[in-house]
Computed example of a mutant assay.
Amino acid sequence: MPHQPEPLVIGHRGASALRPEHTMPSYETAIALGADYIEPDLVSTRDHVLVARHENEISGTTDVADHPEFAARRTTKTIDGVTVTGWFTEDFTLAELRTLRATERIPDLRPGNAAFDGLAPIPTFDEVVELAVRHGVGVYPETKHPSYFDSIGLSLEEPLLDVLGRHGRRDRHDPVFIQSFEAANLRELRETTRLPLIQLIGGSGAAYDRMVTPAGLEEIATYADGIGVATSRVVPTGSGGRLLAPTTLVRDAHRVGLDVHVWTVRDENAQLPADFRRGDPDGPAYARATGDVMGWLAMLYDLGVDGVFADNPGTARAVLAGRSRRIAAS
């Protein structure tokens, strides 16, 4: 796996606290702020090109609804058992998607990002990897809904590995992590690549509960190199969103040779444990005000995590820098 002398800073969808997610400006900002890795979520176009979007349904992250020429493409589908209505990447060619522009997904929480609406096109995975290689940072792609895309003849695995290979990213020690919530997807990839694989684990659900047991972690270690877990798996929350005692997950995972990367650290009060929120809860801007995210990051680092997905990579990098200075001075 890629060598890491200290916890990794992973730019979650780029620097999504500061620019609309999954855009080249977002990835470029993440790199400028010190991210070790940038994270594109991957879906496919109709002509089988991988593009960076959080979901294949794009009405919340692009201006597609403002394009009358695509009005008839709006439809309803079942994706992984969930009924979704909107516009889907697999119904567009890359050329058609290129006529759209990205928009901020959560403008009420991040109104400043909305100033960048309409400026950036949807990037291809190839463009994201080229950017990462050019700046000497890693790339941390997630395959989104791989079973669904398999079912419609647009498998994600082959074009993913093809793009990485064309940029010289094939070896176990190259700066790449491939992540997925689907174990079957990772098992298939394990047969075809030496690149490090990360099993994503949600914060709730019986299947995920089994994965974080000692036996479940041993099973994951047969096909993956690490786990990417919700922060609540490391430090649960109780009444009122306040933190409870940490679990043994980090120690248990390390015991079987798995790295632990946690998601997602966000700056806003609404996204932080209650212990790290700041300001007047009755104030009009309380939800989007910045809390003590640095304190939250420091706690996670102290618990021994190997990487953090951060919406603001600059904050995560600053906490690590301060930590390094204190260690050097001690």
Results as ranks from 00 to 15, higher is better:
V308D: 09
E218Q: 15
F92I: 06
L197H: 07
G118K: 08
E39K: 06
A207H: 13
E90F: 15
G81D: 01
M24L: 15
I327T: 14
E130F: 03
G34C: 03
D150W: 13
L154E: 05
A72L: 12
R101L: 06
G295C: 08
D63L: 07
K77V: 12
G60I: 12
A285R: 14
S155N: 11
S324C: 03
I38D: 08
S44V: 06
R170Y: 06
V305Q: 00
V64Q: 07
Q4I: 15
G14K: 02
E55Y: 05
P121W: 05
V234A: 06
T315N: 14
I198G: 03
R277G: 06
F149T: 01
A316F: 06
A52N: 09
T213S: 11
H67P: 12
E191Q: 15
R277I: 04
G322W: 11
A289W: 11
H135R: 12
E127L: 05
L300S: 01
V129T: 10
D174Y: 08
P214R: 11
A207E: 15
E69V: 15
F309K: 04
P159M: 00
V229E: 10
I106T: 15
T76V: 07
P236Q: 00
E57K: 03
A270P: 02
L42W: 13
A310L: 11
G136W: 01
R169G: 06
T192W: 10
G168K: 08
P284S: 03
L131W: 10
N113G: 12
V133S: 02
L94Q: 07
L186A: 00
P123N: 10
L160K: 06
A30Q: 00
Y223T: 11
L100C: 01
V82H: 13
A298L: 04
D306I: 10
A102Q: 00
G279T: 03
R190N: 03
A316V: 04
P236H: 04
R210H: 14
A298H: 09
T237Y: 02
P159W: 01
V84M: 09
E57Y: 01
P246A: 05
D171N: 12
F116A: 14
R277T: 12
S151K: 12
N56Q: 15
V305G: 01
D80M: 09
E182K: 01
M299W: 08
G86N: 01
L97F: 03
A35V: 01
R325F: 13
D280E: 07
I79S: 04
G228I: 08
N56W: 00
A132G: 01
G257N: 11
F181Y: 11
L18D: 10
D282V: 10
R98A: 15
S44C: 14
Y286P: 02
G314S: 04
E69H: 12
R98Q: 15
G226N: 10
G136L: 02
G136E: 04
D252W: 09
M24D: 02
G168W: 12
A318C: 05
P141I: 06
L258C: 10
G283N: 06
R194F: 11
E142G: 04
L131G: 08
T89W: 07
L97S: 05
V293F: 09
H167I: 09
P175D: 11
L161N: 05
P25Y: 08
R210C: 05
I38G: 03
L258F: 07
G291H: 00
A245Y: 06
D259R: 15
T83Q: 14
Y27K: 08
L100Y: 01
P5W: 12
R105C: 02
G205M: 06
I106G: 02
